[in-house]
Design a binder for these strands. Structure first.
Lengths: 344, 344
DNA sequence: AACCGGAACGGAAGCGTTTCCATTTCCAAA
DNA sequence: TTTGGAAATGGAAACGCTTCCGTTCCGGTT
């Protein structure tokens, strides 16, 4: 362990390798203009002394940071965690570092963009699952930092997402195809996020209409995101005089909560009531919950790829948008409509 | 928007404020040696021009980075996600940035410490949930980066954790106090982590012994972490000729999997079989699962606090260790032992 | 043999801060 | 008033790298 001595600089490496600092820099950065032999020598010396370029100095001199900001609402939720993990993975493989910003609430987020901690700290920022206001975006652009969105809605900057409307249709159409005519919806909103028209909600209404089923306002309840809220929402649905034979939940977590209520009430799933969610959360498998699978990891990977592109060609690839497909996963929480027990 | 001009440097701010760069620097860094009036003036100018210090230049000159490395195995799991979110939150509040490294496997991890990407990139690293080899630790120390652990085992560096043995006892003792004598254990291991004696396992054996219950090797099954594996493990337990009346799972996820198997088998929880987990995963509430609550967020907060301490007093606070308490949360998955149905 | 273009290479000039050191300023004590 | 020292300042010297630019060194041309 001879490397306890003062930290080596690129100049030391250059000297040890018998080259100039310029050459050493080029060699270490895998830049052109160095003969293969020289490069080998420099790399060997560097390796031997466990030397690595100081990112700070490098960043200062080169004007790039080699860092990407990752802004995400609730890192403790499966969806975001998975997304982040995947993005980090491909970015790191590309030699970039990821600066994490867990910005939960609306205010936090505003403040984040306000202070622009990202300023001079990152080359680009990836925003997961929520829209960036136009003013914010322009500011970032002005500062020269690229911006990419993952798992959110359509936007004017490069982004990757799923089609919420299609996903919703896959869920609701499944229920309809099983013969259900009385379908409840548990609409989930995030109180911390700006309200926006949800494709998942539109899908419900449109699907019913297409099937010629008359809308019944009583059958749609709105609640906050999160399992426990789903449980409470389900209770409201069950208290209806004409309770639905099937329920469409905006997410698996909400569905899980609803399932608890159903089970506690003594009703059986799916015999007495069918339920379908969206996401294909790992928990769905354990719950035997029918759901619509959305490729979270793939979205993350695609978003990271977008960042890499942006950094490579400095030219913004014209508002690129990637929409990934979803698909229904049938498990044991849905079945055809039960024969009406009550003699009408 | 007049700030589209070339980026301002501290020299510009100094000039605009009518002071020297040294003074400007001190003012901006909230360092002593500047009169209140002068500081105000500098800050005002900086604010007015949306100026912020370049972290790269600052880091280069000052020798610190203002960044903390956060090394975590599986960011997509609730436990780690929560931990990370919490750590990030307090660190960011302290003006530090968090560099995220999602290092899943054993190899990835070794490679990570091997390449020491952290070198010169961070002032400290927080390692979540897995032990750092002594050699690795020494190397980091040599490089001058502090190290803190969260949610893992006891270690020689500052760390915060829970007492796995106690948590395990709380779970198993609960079962025993309900009258169970035939208690199965689903032991969960992470194939990607180094094996180590688990307090949760020791607790099981010791609790049975203390209660005078003869150990039965058939009743403990080992499986990989993750719900689906728990399901499979439970199947093994149920296939026993003398199946247990209660099951102790090392984690809620595993317990969730086990519950699915039990339910699919047609058995009722808790009438036919009781089950208890550990963690108090949000899912446990939706599953009505009795479990041992562990304060994840608090662990994260404490770990972040340790980092802050370390950075403040440059002197390592003598292998500080913080152990947080756990407690049993009784829900609907456990009940007293059913009267033996078979005439013996 | 003189010449030429290009690849390699060396080195100095920044990049935007912090910090040490030398000065100047300011005030209260003498 | 004079004066000693604390407080406030200004400025130059790093910090460790990238990059531009001028040289040197080749092999192939004419």
């Amino acid at each position: 362990m001879a490397d306890s001595q003062r930290n080596l600089t690129i100049a030391d490496i250059a000297r040890l390798a018998g080259v100039g600092v310029g050459t050493a820099s080029r060699a270490l950065n895998n830049a052109p203009g160095v003969s293969a032999a020289t490069r080998q020598r420099v790399l060997a010396v560097a390796d031997q002394h466990a030397y690595v370029i100081s990112p700070d100095a490098s960043g200062l001199a080169a004007g790039r940071t080699g860092r990407i900001g990752l802004v995400v609402p609730h890192i403790d939720r499966w969806f975001f965690g998975t997304m982040v993990g995947e993005i980090e993975s491909v970015l790191r493989a590309a030699g970039l570092d990821v600066l994490l910003y867990d910005v939960g609430g609306l205010d936090d987020r505003r403040e984040f963009f306000e202070q622009l901690p990202a300023r001079k700290k990152v080359d680009a920022v990836v925003v997961v699952a929520f829209p960036v206001e136009e003013a914010e975006r322009q500011r970032l652009t002005l500062l020269g930092v690229h911006i990419v969105a993952a798992g959110g809605q359509h936007a004017v900057y490069p982004h990757v997402c799923i089609d919420d409307y299609v996903a919703g249709r896959q869920a609701v159409d499944h229920l309809i195809s099983l013969g259900h005519r009385s379908i409840g919806m548990i609409e989930a909103v995030d109180p911390e996020q700006p309200v926006r028209p949800s494709g998942r909600t539109a899908a419900y209404h449109r699907a019913l209409a297409d099937a010629g089923i008359a809308p019944d306002p009583d059958l749609v309840v709105t609640t906050n995101w999160g399992g426990i809220n789903g449980a409470e929402a389900m209770a409201r649905l069950l208290s209806l005089s004409h309770r639905p034979t099937a329920v469409y939940a905006h997410s698996d977590e909400v569905a899980a909560g609803a399932m608890r209520t159903i089970r506690r009430t003594g009703l059986r799933i799916p015999e007495d009531i069918s339920i379908v969610g969206i996401d294909d959360h790992p928990m769905a498998e354990l719950l035997d919950l029918t759901t619509v699978h959305q490729p979270v990891a793939e979205q993350g990977r695609a978003a990271a790829g977008l960042v890499l592109d942006l950094l490579r060609n400095d030219t913004p690839p014209a508002d690129q948008a990637i929409t990934l497909p979803t698909h229904l996963v049938v498990r044991r929480s849905t079945t055809s409509v039960p024969p009406t027990p009550d003699p009408s």
